[in-house]
């Protein structure tokens, strides 16, 4: 079930990312919805699952970006693992905390991408600083919205189950 939801989440993120790029060419500079999905799924603290999710998400991001494969794969894997490890140590429930986690994850990813690009790619052009800031912030906001939405949906689901349970008893 969880694998299906992760797959659907990635598919949705990929479609939205693709749609954004076709509508606005600079969309990929300002948004990384695959990373949002990766961090979102890695927040439950399961390190192995986070590794797999990060790796898959990174490769998907590489595929959408036209390669080279491994660039986002490496960065997103490490970001997902770090997020999972942090989630094991800290319980982040407040909105500001969630915003911070996603923003820091994006910052880490961009730093890793820059480092990998400088190390491995023959000619690399790093995005301008405002775009990097915008991408970090947009990831934070998108992650926060996603987390808030998930919280509300969970609350509604629990309330419905509770109503159904009490109804059966009555």
């Amino acid at each position: 079930m969880r694998a299906v939801s992760i797959g659907l989440g990635f598919l949705l993120a990929a479609l939205l990312q693709l749609a954004g790029v076709t509508v606005w060419p600079e969309f990929a500079l300002a948004f990384d919805l695959i990373l949002v999905a990766v961090v979102f799924f890695a927040r439950d603290g399961r390190a192995v699952a986070a590794l797999l999710v990060g790796s898959a998400g990174g490769l998907l991001a590489d595929a959408l970006g036209g390669g080279p494969f491994g660039l986002h794969g490496f960065a997103d894997t490490l970001v997902a693992y770090t997020t999972a490890r942090v989630a094991q140590q800290l319980v982040v429930e407040r909105s500001s905390g969630v915003l911070l986690v996603f923003t820091l994850a994006s910052t880490l990813q961009q730093a890793l991408l820059a480092a990998l690009g400088l190390l491995f790619l023959p000619s690399v052009q790093l995005p301008a600083a405002p775009w990097m800031v915008a991408r970090a912030l947009s990831t934070g906001v998108a992650g926060l919205l996603l987390a808030v939405g998930q919280r509300a949906a969970t609350r509604r689901l629990l309330a419905r189950r509770e109503r159904r349970r009490t109804g059966w008893r009555g």
Binding site: L71, F74, Y81
Partner: peptide
């Protein structure tokens, strides 16, 4: 099991990604 598997898998995946990246660049 998860914690024991986590770190080796991390290095494995990262290594694989780097290898893939290097191979593509070459």
């Amino acid at each position: 099991m998860s914690s024991r598997l986590g770190r080796p898998l991390l290095f494995l995946l990262l290594g694989a990604q780097l290898a893939l990246l290097t191979w593509q660049v070459r």
